[in-house]
């Protein structure tokens, strides 16, 4: 069996993810009022971005894969934007 070592970027990504998990749990207990939700989701997005870029190897992929990966998110954005628009502007 030849020596195989986990590639550095993967290890770094894993450590960063665990650190971000700790950070987000900690910050959840700090009263920031409405910003708690913003912080939680922002850190969630950051974690998702790390997983996508490093684990899912998006950083090595071309424009086409980017578009494919982004399409789902873009349409999710449409769903949330127009869906919530109604509920946020009810009188």
């Amino acid at each position: 069996m030849t020596a195989w070592r986990p590639p550095l970027p993967l290890v770094a990504a894993w450590l960063a993810l665990i650190a971000l998990l700790g950070l987000t749990v900690m910050l959840a207990y700090v009263p920031l009022h409405m910003f708690n939700a913003v912080v939680a989701l922002a850190i969630g997005c950051l974690k998702a971005a790390i997983v996508a870029a490093v684990f899912m190897e998006l950083r090595h992929r071309g424009r086409r894969t980017f578009i494919f990966a982004g399409a789902g998110l873009f349409w999710l954005g449409i769903l949330l934007w127009l869906g919530l628009m109604d509920f946020l502007t009810r009188t």
């Binding site: 449409i78 109604d86 509920f87 946020l88 502007t89 009188t91």
Partner: peptide, 22 residues
Amino acid sequence: GFLVWGHHMFVAGQSLLASLVF
């Protein structure tokens, strides 16, 4: 076509702004 769905709900009670946008 993904941005127009609310026109099925003009009389269903959605907000006026939503109706206008849709």
